[in-house]
Design a protein around this nucleic acid. Structure first.
Lengths: 150, 150
DNA sequence: CCGTATCCAACTAGATACTG
DNA sequence: CAGTATCTAGTTGGATACGG
């Protein structure tokens, strides 16, 4: 990487040597990434989706399965939103005591593939990222007197 | 992985006759999804990554390119974190006025494929989701008597 | 069992002003 | 240009209590 210190104005014409992979030509539309991220970027949605990927679950089952001790309130909010988005189907059986089942819709199921890709990427790059963080922290914490002390 | 429509398994009523696509056998580890989501689930990271996918950008360039009028503060925080994670490389040229360039690292570039997948999914399912939301809203607003008006 | 309602703590993000 | 520092507002999430 010899980006010459001499020539400050390096021609930027040959920038995307590789293909851009993704580019938002219409910033007004803001691509579509925001939508998905708003959908599963919250604290619990992805856990619910992952759990439901294994099958039908009842409310309490979900609550117990989700890691991190989700509260009733948050589980309700999360699952309602997923239902509204058409990712989860909610089935109520008017029994006593009441029984409610949650399952992924087809759309919701298609999301699991995406979540899987996310998880795979995370696992694959976790060591690299951790190393980078350590290096960055070391470079940005108070250096223990670089060289001659006092 | 026979994820596609290969040999048809029984069209279940909801139970996972097919493989779950994703499942967290170790809830303690919380899969790996949380990591990625914590990384690009915030308001700006994904925009910065998308913009940098097209090439090298300077600070102000980034700020102008990102949709939504990101503040200096937020851009700094976002870009610093990406740098710490090893997704973005920051190059400072000690010129006057100062010039700082940002570009994706290899790890960061690999993330763009994931972001692309996210965007594609979003665009593909946007109509369906919007329809579901409309239907849900209609079903959950005060229904003025079921069917008989006036 | 399956929620809803209320209150409160924590975190995130914006506006603004200032520095090198 | 490229940040940093403060302060404030808005949003998210948790605890708890209560209702169907």
């Amino acid at each position: 990487m010899s980006v010459g210190h001499t020539a400050v104005t390096t021609p930027r014409t040959g920038e995307p040597v590789t293909e851009p992979v993704i580019a938002c030509d219409t910033p007004q539309e803001e691509c579509g990434v925001r939508d998905v991220l708003d959908r599963l970027g919250d604290k619990w949605s992805v856990y619910v989706i992952v759990e439901l990927a294994s099958g039908i679950r009842r409310f309490r089952e979900l609550q117990r399965a989700v890691p991190g001790n989700i509260s009733q309130r948050m589980l309700t909010l999360t699952v309602r939103r997923l239902e509204r988005d058409g990712l989860v189907r909610r089935t109520v059986y008017p029994t006593v005591p009441p029984q409610v089942e949650y399952q992924l819709t087809d759309t919701g199921h298609s999301l699991t593939h995406l979540v899987k890709a996310l998880a795979d990427w995370s696992i694959a790059h976790r060591p690299t990222i951790a190393a980078s963080q350590t290096a960055w922290d070391a470079a940005h914490t108070e250096p223990p007197t670089t060289g001659a002390p006092s």
